[in-house]
């Protein structure tokens, strides 16, 4: 910048970070692998409204859709956004904003799917308030307000929906920073889905589900292959499970930022604190 111009435009690193995060958020919001899943989710919600039903006996089923369409696909979107600038690394390597700041901006951009997930979770609440779910027969419990404490329902809604929509993309950023080769996105998605499916496929009530990055907190009970009732998994506290997945999100951010030198001490301290917090949440979630 010319001397005169440099004086006229003082460097504000915080403002730069926010401007970069906004630009990355726009890139995220326009990515086809985000737009298409969003469209599918909106159609699903509209159909739900048209048919005047919420989530049937399992009102939390919508969160699984959010987690899959925004979390898993978000992993790929974030991975691609992170690696996309590798094509122009010669240019990007000679700008004053460093790679660590760029990674942080991408992590902030991952709030886009989280915000969409939050809105969709809100719509699920509204739908199920209008058309309350019932077990079959109606005295059987379902994982919803009334049958269970509000704190459990809200914690589960958040953990399984918006937080998953945040965690998938954050993991995508971390994987892209540490393994920036083309196939790592696919490998990461497969690993994520397989790990979740394996830990989620245990017997009803199995507390092993907590090991997963996306703990399935609901058990479905069937009669003749028809779901008649849903209950929260015995032995898992949803509120602490929410804390566990939030800590995992924070650890993904720290892992992504640790790829570059700079702020190493602060990051290691933050990583240590988050690891302790995650361990506490994990243990308290399984009383």
């Amino acid at each position: 910048m010319s001397t005169a111009l440099a004086q006229a435009v003082p460097v504000d690193e915080r403002a730069t970070l926010l401007a970069l995060a906004r630009a990355d958020a726009r890139r995220y919001a326009r990515h086809p692998l985000f737009v298409v899943p969003c469209a599918i989710l909106v159609v699903a919600l509209v159909v739900g409204v048209a048919q005047q039903e919420g989530g049937g006996t399992n009102p939390l089923i919508g969160t699984m859709t959010i987690a899959f369409l925004l979390g898993v696909f978000g992993f790929v979107v974030a991975h691609r956004l992170t690696t996309s600038l590798l094509r122009t690394r010669e240019l990007a390597g000679t700008v004053p904003v460093g790679q660590q700041e760029r990674t942080l901006a991408l992590c902030l951009a991952c709030l886009v799917p989280a915000a969409v997930g939050l809105v969709l979770a809100g719509v699920i609440v509204i739908e199920n308030t209008l058309w309350p779910p019932d077990g079959v027969p109606s005295d059987l419990p379902v994982t919803w307000f009334g049958d269970y404490p509000a704190s459990d329902v809200i914690a589960t809604l958040l953990a399984a929906g918006p937080v998953a929509a945040l965690g998938g993309p954050l993991l995508g950023v971390a994987v892209a920073r540490w393994a920036p080769f083309r196939g790592s996105a696919l490998l990461g998605v497969v690993a994520l889905v397989v790990a979740t499916a394996m830990t989620g496929s245990d017997e009803p009530g199995g507390a092993e589900r907590m090991v997963s990055a996306w703990p399935i907190l609901v058990d479905e009970h069937t009669v003749d292959d028809n779901v008649v009732s849903t209950t929260f998994v015995t032995g898992i506290e949803p509120l602490w499970a929410l804390g566990w997945v939030l800590c995992l999100c924070g650890l993904a951010v720290v892992a992504a930022l640790l790829r570059d030198p700079g702020h190493r001490r602060q990051l290691l301290v933050a990583g240590g604190a988050l690891t302790v917090a995650a361990a506490v949440c994990f243990l308290l979630a399984r009383p």
């Binding site: 910048m1 690193e13 730069t16 691609r80 240019l91 760029r102």
Partner: peptide, 27 residues
Amino acid sequence: PQETGFPRGFTVFSFIDYMAILKNWSD
């Protein structure tokens, strides 16, 4: 540089705008 690639999806304006942010043009 002698050679450079471009990230996918960027328009001319958005690419230069993005580079401007990376050069601390925050306003």
